[in-house]
Every structure is written in C-alpha cells, then in structure tokens.
C-alpha cells in the first residue's frame, strides 16, 4: 500500500510501486478525469500537477510520488482553474473533449507560473498536449481570456 496525497487528501493505493500514477488514478482509485492517450509521455492527456508542475502521469511510478502534492482535474479548484473553466466554456473549446483534462492541467500550471503569457509562452507550455480535434486556436484564445480575467480581478 502506497500512500499518496491527491487533491489534498491522503489516499492509500493498493498497487505495485512501479505502477504509473495514471493507472493508479484511473483503475485503482477510479478517478477517470485523467485520461490515457499514449502511455509514453507524448500526448499530455494524462497531465496532472505534482507540486504545482505539470507532469505526464503515465510516466510517473507511484513509488516516486510519496510526499508530493498531486492535483488532478477533479481537484483543480481555485481562481486559476475557475477562470480557465469559464474561458473554456466561453470559447466553446472542447470538441470530443478527450484531451481537455490534460489541456486544462497544463494551462493551470502555465497561468499559475506566468499570469500574462505571450503566444510563445502558451506554445511552450502547451506543446506537450496533443488535441486530435485540433482545438488549438480556441485553447490559445481561452488561455488569454482567463489570464485577462485573472489580471483584472
């Protein structure tokens, strides 16, 4: 049993220590907001925050995460996440939606660090997140909108 701090709660995970966080979340804890897209850190569908940094949970064995603060889409709360959710709705970003948990977690990490990102900042922070529906134009616009709202608040 490995104890992890997920969304502010201590959770016992009954899985092999080498299990990637992605599968511990999805299959053991049944927290399926974090998605499986590639399993090799190429697509970003599985992005979560570990101590505030966006990481690909498919490449993080749970044994290495003891003592870290893990935030998943289910626990993405607070002004930055809320501003992003609202902007995602305003710009009608999702199409199929499957990549969007990962997109939002990368965007949360970006705006937490860089409140007024340029297009280049957005490209750098979001290039690990594939969207096969190619919602990128709206992702970019929505991040700018959220940043604007946060700056004005």
């Amino acid at each position: 049993m490995i104890e992890l701090n997920i969304n502010g709660t201590a959770r016992g995970v009954d899985a092999d220590p080498a299990t990637p966080l992605l599968w511990a979340l999805r299959d053991t804890l049944k927290m399926t907001g974090t998605k499986f897209g590639c399993g090799i850190a190429q697509c970003g569908a599985c992005t979560v925050l570990v101590d505030g940094m966006a990481v690909r949970s498919c490449q993080q064995p749970i044994e290495g995460l003891v003592g870290s603060e893990i935030t998943t889409i289910e626990g993405a709360k607070g002004p930055v996440a809320e501003a992003l959710h609202a902007a995602w709705v305003e710009h009608q970003v999702p199409q199929c939606g499957y990549c969007q948990s990962g997109q939002l977690m990368s965007a949360v990490a970006l705006l937490s660090d860089t409140p007024k990102p340029t297009d280049a900042d957005i490209d750098a922070a979001m290039q690990g997140n594939i969207c096969r529906c190619a919602t990128y134009v709206r992702i970019r616009a929505a991040i700018h909108t959220a940043a604007g709202k946060l700056g004005a608040a």
């Binding site: 999805r26 399926t32 907001g33 889409i73 995602w88 499957y98 969007q100 939002l104």
Partner: peptide, 16 residues
C-alpha cells in the same frame, strides 16, 4: 457537452 468536457468528462467515455 462543453461544461462537463471542461471539468474532466467524468463518465462520458467508454474508456472511463
């Protein structure tokens, strides 16, 4: 579908 898809798409996809 935009609101739920902006909040993790819980229980939307067969994969989940």
């Amino acid at each position: 579908d935009v609101k739920t898809k902006s909040e993790g798409s819980v229980n939307l996809f067969a994969m989940d």
